[in-house]
Every structure is written in C-alpha cells, then in structure tokens.
C-alpha cells in the first residue's frame, strides 16, 4: 500500500517524552484517530481536546491526505 507523508504537531502535555513536530509516514487511508493511537500520546491521562488539520477543526474519523499538517491538543484554555 502506498504511503503518505504528513506533518504531526504535538502540544501541551502531549509533548512529554514525545516530539514537538515531525514528518511521519502513514499508509493511505489512515485516520486521525489511528495517528493518535500510533503516536502513543497520553490520551488516557489527558483526553483529546482539539484536532486541527491545515487550520480547520476535524474529528477522529477524518482521513489524512499527503502533505497535511495535523495538530493535536489536549483540552486547553486561557484568555
């Protein structure tokens, strides 16, 4: 199966022991939820708050396309 390259960015507590930004390869048809599982970020401790691809909010079932930038955040707030 063909692979695609996407940019994955992690924020806040998701960076602990992981990375800030990486180019990563996934099989075509990979969903956001599958990327979350593959990175092993601490969603049990810090549930997913916001998923953004190319500046737009998405859900876990969104299928990634080559060249996408996916940003993953736990629940954050301020103001």
């Amino acid at each position: 199966m063909a692979e695609i390259t996407v940019t994955v960015k992690l924020f806040a507590q998701y960076r602990e022991g992981k990375f800030k930004v990486e180019q990563r390869q996934y099989p075509e048809g990979t969903t956001v939820g599958e990327v979350i599982a593959e990175t092993g970020i601490a969603v049990d401790r810090y549930p997913i708050g916001v998923m953004i691809i190319n500046g737009r909010h998405v859900e876990e079932d969104r299928i990634l396309e080559a060249g996408d930038t996916l940003a993953l955040f736990p629940k954050v707030g301020g103001g």
């Binding site: 806040a12 810090y46 953004i52 909010h57 955040f73 629940k75 707030g77 301020g78 103001g79």
Partner: peptide, 25 residues
C-alpha cells in the same frame, strides 16, 4: 476536575493559547 482549569492552566498558564490560536489561523 476540569482538564482546562485543573490541568492545562496550572501547567502552562494562559499562554498555552498561542499555539492553538495560531494553528487555527
């Protein structure tokens, strides 16, 4: 128990917003 007031704000402060507001354009 709220993840924002109980976890995110104590750990990173209000400035945690820079990245998410930036990613959202």
């Amino acid at each position: 128990e709220n993840p924002i007031s109980g976890e995110g704000l104590p750990a990173f402060g209000t400035d945690i917003l820079v990245n998410i507001i930036n990613e959202a354009g």
